Computed example of a mutant assay.
Amino acid sequence: MGDLINAIIMGIVEGLTEFLPVSSTGHLILTADLLNFTGERAKTFEVVIQFGAVLAVLVLYRQRFASLLNFKFGKGSGLNALHILLALIPAGVCAVLLHGLIKQYLFGPQTVLIGLVAGGILMIVADRVRKKPSAEELDDITYKQAFAVGCFQVLALWPGFSRSGSTISGGMLFGASQKAAAEFTFIVSVPIMAGASGVDLIKSREFLTMADLPLFLIGLIAAFVVAMVAVVTFINLMKKIKLSWFAYYRFALAALFYFIIL
């Protein structure tokens, strides 16, 4: 029963934090430490529940994903698969080249703490020096802005930096509104998260057993349901509050992280 409760808690944490600019990695490490839910089995579980969060975005933006193959060029062409590809290339190339080094050297409490603080500083900078939006809506995002978001996504390879935090900041610095940058981040996150989690899952397949199936399914479902609510709520918040508020939360989390784990 204890493991099932842990699965629900971890699934909720994953769903709440995966697409918010607050670092799901930092929250999962902190939560797992508090629950004493660690080891290779727990790491494999964390990979599985990420698919629940990915599925939530696929469901919420299913019509948008279906329309990505509608290629039109020029002003007002709308979002298409080329935007996504341009945003994927920088982080994708770096992830392939540096995957082993990242797993070996960067997945630890100290590096996550650094990522939380550095990512928060980037978000405050983006809030204060951002341009007047030239892309108010998702379909207004240009290829140049898409590639810029992709370059900022490279920062998310550092655990704790936050994929959504770095990409939303990058989008804002290159002229996208908070809302447009957030929605673009959600869509771009699906292929890169699915790919990265898929690779990790294959490498961790020895830790997958039928006995753990209920545990993994409960965590995945919890992450899916909570992520659905979190994404819709976050998009509405992006219309009302500044990105900096999430940065201040990150600083508070970093302090908590320091005193509890370090």
Rank of each mutant, 00 (worst) to 15 (best):
G2L: 15
G2E: 14
D3L: 15
D3F: 14
D3S: 11
N6P: 01
N6G: 06
A7R: 01
I9Y: 05
I12V: 15
V13C: 09
L20W: 06
V22N: 06
S23W: 12
S23V: 12
G26T: 12
L30V: 07
T31L: 06
L34P: 00
F37A: 04
G39Y: 12
G39P: 13
G39W: 09
E40H: 11
K43I: 10
T44C: 12
F45S: 08
L55M: 14
A56C: 11
V57S: 09
V59E: 05
V59Q: 03
R62E: 09
F65E: 05
L68C: 06
G74F: 09
G74H: 08
G78R: 08
G78A: 09
L85N: 10
L85M: 14
A87T: 07
I89M: 06
P90M: 11
P90F: 13
A91K: 03
A95L: 12
A95N: 08
L97T: 10
H99Y: 07
K103E: 15
Q104G: 09
L106H: 01
G108N: 15
P109A: 15
V112P: 00
I114K: 10
I114W: 13
I121K: 11
I121T: 10
I121C: 12
M123H: 13
M123N: 11
D127P: 09
R128C: 09
S134I: 14
A135S: 06
E136A: 10
E136N: 13
E137F: 00
L138Q: 02
D139L: 08
D139T: 09
D139E: 10
I141T: 02
V149Y: 01
V154G: 03
V154C: 08
A156M: 03
A156Y: 02
W158I: 14
G160M: 11
G160Q: 05
G160E: 06
S162W: 09
R163G: 13
R163I: 08
R163A: 11
G165A: 12
S166T: 15
S169F: 02
S169V: 13
M172G: 07
F174Q: 09
F174N: 13
G175H: 07
A176L: 06
A176I: 03
Q178T: 11
A180T: 04
A182W: 00
A182T: 13
F184N: 05
T185K: 15
V188W: 05
V190G: 03
P191S: 01
I192F: 14
A194F: 10
A194Y: 01
V199N: 08
L201R: 05
I202V: 15
K203D: 14
E206V: 07
A211Y: 03
D212C: 02
D212H: 14
L213I: 11
L215V: 14
A223P: 06
A223I: 03
V225D: 03
V226Y: 07
A227N: 04
M228F: 10
V232Q: 13
V232M: 11
I235D: 02
N236R: 15
M238N: 03
K240R: 15
K240S: 10
Y248C: 12
Y248Q: 04
R250Y: 14
A255K: 07
F257Q: 00
Y258V: 03
I260G: 00
I260Q: 05
L262Y: 11
L262T: 00
